[in-house]
């Protein structure tokens, strides 16, 4: 009986040690990738390529989702607000939900699914086909060549995507509220403008999405870099990237919302 209990305690201990070690390895990886700044010319070329893969290729899904989420928010909001004769407040409702929460959060979740999983799979495949080892044997640091440009591309792309998401979402709400439901366009904008504060809303939107970008890209790169090099390992790592990023995004969002708007 007591042996079983001690075994369980040992399991908990091993689990904790594994996790702490994993976090340590992830930290070292990120530190090494960031600190060794890439050389300017070659680094820029690599970064541009990754911005294309990570940013440009995620743009369609972000814009389409943003448009629809803005429209749905407006439709649902309208049916509730119109009951109180407060349909004028549709603009601020949509704009504030998008800028404060949905913009950064949904963009980061979509980004984790679209770009994060692709990063993990790509790097996992590079590792399992020994391309990373091969770079090392060519005296080229894979952290600098492979990890760093992808990290920066993620950190640059996600905030931009979140801004695009919120912007197109607000225009989606405008389509539903003004063109369809007949709210006056002037009052839609003026009430919206009166309630959106650029420092508390837009800057916080950017802060949130930068934090999410760092976390998602970091998890994706770490999962790929430390993959068990076989097909099963890669598929597992890809799933882990999406699950862990999503949980991290939602938890961090709650934390940051409490700090920014909770007071």
């Amino acid at each position: 009986m007591s042996v079983i209990v001690i075994d369980k305690i040992a399991n908990v201990g091993r689990w904790a040690i594994d996790n702490v070690m994993g976090m340590g390895r992830a930290g070292i990886m990120l530190y090494s990738a960031i600190v060794r700044l890439p050389r300017f010319k070659k680094g820029t070329a690599l970064l541009v390529k990754q911005l294309y893969v990570v940013g440009v290729q995620s743009m369609v899904i972000i814009l389409v989702s943003g448009l629809f989420i803005g429209m749905v928010l407006a439709l649902q909001g309208y049916t509730i607000l119109v009951g109180y004769g407060a349909e004028q407040s549709l603009g601020p409702m949509v704009a504030l939900s998008l800028l404060r929460e949905l913009g950064p959060v949904v963009t980061a979740l979509l980004f984790a699914g679209r770009a994060g999983s692709a990063l993990t799979a790509e790097i996992g495949l590079m590792k399992s086909t020994e391309q990373l080892s091969s770079l090392e044997m060519m005296a080229i640091d894979p952290l600098r060549q492979i990890i760093a440009p992808r990290f920066w591309a993620g950190v640059i792309s996600l905030p931009l995507l979140a801004l695009m998401f919120s912007t197109i979402g607000i225009y989606g709400a405008h389509i539903v509220g003004v063109d369809w439901k007949g709210i006056d366009s002037g009052s839609f904008w003026s009430i919206l403008q009166a309630s959106v504060e650029w420092r508390s809303d837009i800057v916080n939107c950017l802060i949130k999405s930068v934090v999410f970008a760092v976390v998602v890209t970091w998890i994706a790169l770490y999962r790929g870099y430390h993959v068990i090099p076989n097909p099963e390992g890669i598929s597992k790592a890809t799933t882990q990237t999406v699950v862990q990023s999503s949980l991290a995004i939602l938890a961090l969002d709650f934390l940051m919302t409490t700090m920014m708007f909770g007071q």
């Binding site: 940013g55 792309s157 931009l160 801004l163 695009m164 919206l192 504060e197």
Partner: peptide, 20 residues
């Protein structure tokens, strides 16, 4: 990539000047 960066900047400007 250039267009992507410009689109991001445009979104930022729209948010700052038109929305806020």
């Amino acid at each position: 990539v250039g267009l992507f960066l410009l689109a991001g900047l445009a979104a930022f400007l729209v948010l700052v000047f038109n929305v806020a």
